[in-house]
């Protein structure tokens, strides 16, 4: 793995240079959190950019770039094509890149039929991950085998030196980005002092996470969920749920969608819309039967999908502890407590 570094003050220049590879998104402060913002070459406070880069995952999950909430996927009778252009996405944390690789790639790129649009985006989009030095109370990657930094999955990774940003090149696409960046005259070799500082920051973040989440999750979650068939358990464990579906809509591992057709000319356009299993009609079939008609069944279904079915099918839990569902919940439900109550 090759690495280089550049001064904190050059972050805006870094973004500007990345934007030559495609439409670029970066984390921008938005109140007490960050969200992905389109880079428009405007004058921005470099300290604000740096502060945003250090904060935990942006509000939107990374998957939103790859699985849009609504997109046309086919037409009839004429053939449908789509022009997908490269993008550069800066700011994915370890929890998010792992949901893309461990969950969405397993669904959308494996099996007999790949999703061609997801695949093309995965091939064309550049992902730049960032260390996560400032975990917050909703974070729990550490109890799901995660760390507040990542050394794989993206194309480049940004970590923090005392006065510099350290860039690790993680892929061939990352090499392509870095070859261009080397022309801008701001980068240099990484020093041992920079790496020592980074190690210290990473260790601090891990310590902080260990304090936030002292207790590990049960190791036999699939079996526990399988045995919890009593609707009353789910009714009680998620008693404050008002069925707003915010937890699912914000979840980086939820992958469900439905297809619907809109009349167009003598044929139709087929649209793929992300769908969520708390929705009452989620399981309904043509004749009206609905195996998930009762809300406690739908509550269980969400947990069964992420913590039972997914690990059995793909050897990985479909949750990386990003904590978005906790932040988004209007009923203040904490998924960690539900899992521990199993």
């Amino acid at each position: 793995m090759r690495s280089f570094s550049f001064p904190h003050a050059a972050l805006a220049t870094f973004y500007k240079n990345l934007s030559e590879f495609g439409v670029t998104y970066y984390p921008r402060l938005s109140g007490q959190q960050t969200s992905y913002e389109l880079w428009q070459d405007e004058e921005l406070d470099n300290d604000d950019l740096l502060k945003a880069l250090k904060m935990v995952r942006p509000v939107e999950p990374l998957k939103e770039f790859f699985l849009t909430s609504r997109e046309q996927v086919a037409s009839f009778p004429q053939l449908f094509t789509k022009d997908i252009k490269p993008r550069v996405i800066v700011g994915a944390k370890g929890c998010d890149i792992h949901t893309l690789i461990d969950v969405q790639d397993n669904i959308y790129l494996k099996g007999d039929n790949e999703d061609p649009f997801y695949k093309e985006r995965r091939e064309k989009y550049y992902i730049i991950t960032v260390d996560c030095p400032e975990p917050v109370d909703t974070c729990f990657c550490n109890i799901l085998d995660g760390t507040p930094y990542t050394a794989w999955g993206g194309d480049l990774n940004i970590s923090f030196g005392e006065k510099s940003l350290i860039i690790d090149i993680l892929s061939e696409k990352g090499e392509k980005l870095s070859s261009k960046l080397s022309d801008i005259g701001i980068i240099k070799e990484v020093t041992d002092d920079e790496l020592k500082y980074r190690d210290k920051i990473r260790a601090n973040a891990e310590r902080k996470l260990a304090k936030i989440n002292r207790d590990m999750l049960p190791t036999d979650l699939p079996e526990r969920i399988e045995s919890k068939v009593d609707p009353d358990f789910w009714r009680k464990a998620l008693a404050n749920c008002v069925d707003c579906q915010a937890c699912e809509r914000i979840c980086p591992t939820c992958y469900c969608f439905l297809l619907y057709d809109i009349p167009a000319g003598k044929g139709f356009e087929r649209t793929k819309v992300l769908d969520f299993c708390y929705h009452a009609a989620y399981g309904r079939v043509g004749g009206g039967a609905n195996p998930l008609a009762n809300f406690p069944h739908r509550l269980r279904n969400r947990f069964e999908c992420k913590f039972m079915a997914f690990p059995r099918n793909f050897k990985v839990i479909a949750c990386t502890g990003c904590g978005r569902c906790i932040s988004a919940c209007s009923g203040k439900i904490d998924i960690r407590e539900v899992l521990r109550a199993l």
């Binding site: 669904i107 039929n113 999703d115 469900c256 969608f257 989620y282 399981g283």
Partner: peptide
Amino acid sequence: EKNMSCGFGKCGH
């Protein structure tokens, strides 16, 4: 046979 929307193991239903 359930609510098989996509038909090939992606849509989850």
